[in-house]
Design a protein around this nucleic acid. Structure first.
Lengths: 126, 126, 126, 126
DNA sequence: GTGGTCTAGACCACC
DNA sequence: GTGGTCTAGACCACG
């Protein structure tokens, strides 16, 4: 599937799952009405406890991104795509803001920040 | 002083203090031999529990950034400046990498990422 | 304390806790700024697993009824009283509606329903 | 038919079916010897999985409300009417008790409870 | 001491 | 098979 968890991320695992489901919906990799992987399946895939996945799905349900269909699974709501596209920029923007703020506060000038960004962007492509 | 703590940062408070002390040293705002604020003073200033500051100082002591001077306080070691300048890019780079990775994974293309960065950079200047 | 859990209620335990906290706030038994019982304490008192209490508190946090104070506990927010007083009638009204609907549907006429209510109300006072 | 299922009721669907069959018998809408709808027919009508209906009928059979007639279907037993009329008040009374208990516990006084009941009763007639 | 997170494993209701 | 709930017990960060 389209998820990758990084335990040393700082973010809680369940939160990473929440974010990645949102991103997958925002990127049309998951569409309205589609079923997300079952709790057990995703747990196995990510080598994570089912409860952790269940918790993430619970959060997404509370945010009206997913809805449970009895005995069938969890499906993406019709509201989800719009909401997730809106969320995506906000979620990433918040983290980016926090990092850039620290960089600036840490005494890096704009040039140093830019070159650091360039370096990390090319590292990403590799 | 030169510290600002953001409790909703994801990073633990003590870790934010550790990082900011390192950054202050890297930026020459704190020089070798200088005394850092006392645990109590900094705790009051940041509206944080003294134990939290104490823990941060403990970590910095273990990394040989700070050394305790009996009856006086904690001073910046002579090794600190070099070490902190080295650390600074690494610490910020790691967080930046994590965010950019999420952005890329989240389906943003290079242009969208760049414009998001521009937006956050200008927000920072404001 | 002011909570009583009924495992054979149909409602999940964590949901009963959520509702009862709301009711306690609505009834001014818990006021804004006050600390609710700690997770472990309430768990012990109700003879329930701490995770169950924690989950209830998590829901209340998400609804902005409680806020966690690092290392101290969970406190009632300033928004809580108004919100809980609004919620109380709705929550009870919903259950009442469901029961009365069933009674009516079950072929009881208004008189029979009224006398059943009277009977249960006096049972309550006993 | 005379059934209405509410999935957000708290009660399990199969239990709602059990109760409603009992109520229909108690109200003489179903009489001794009459055939209840087939599993498939009722399942289609309620937009519910046939297994769920089958389970409900199984419970009713175990309680001697229904009896299967080979090759024909399930019929209402001769014992059923008496038994169901007895059950009806008990089943509804139990739920009513639970709600009123919560209302009283939630800090509503007798007047507030009464006016809430009035409100819900008139809502029902509409 | 506090809450937050995670694991492991169980039982239930529903499909 | 599915999700929902609960228990038991662990570790972490924070005060």
């Amino acid at each position: 599937m389209f998820f990758n968890i990084d335990p040393s991320n700082g973010l809680a695992i369940y939160d990473q799952i929440v974010r990645q489901v949102k991103f997958a919906v925002a990127a049309d990799a998951l569409r309205a009405g589609e079923l997300v992987p079952s709790v057990r399946e995703l747990a196995r895939e990510l080598a994570v406890n089912p409860n952790t996945v269940s918790r993430a799905y619970g959060v997404l349900q509370a945010e009206n991104i997913l809805a449970s269909v009895r005995g069938t699974g969890m499906e993406v709501t019709t509201d989800a795509p719009g909401q997730c596209r809106k969320d995506r920029l906000r979620l990433i923007g918040e983290r980016l803001h926090s990092v850039l703020q620290e960089a600036r506060f840490g005494g890096l000038n704009r040039n140093e920040i830019s070159s650091l960004i360039e370096k990390e962007l090319s590292r990403l492509d590799a």
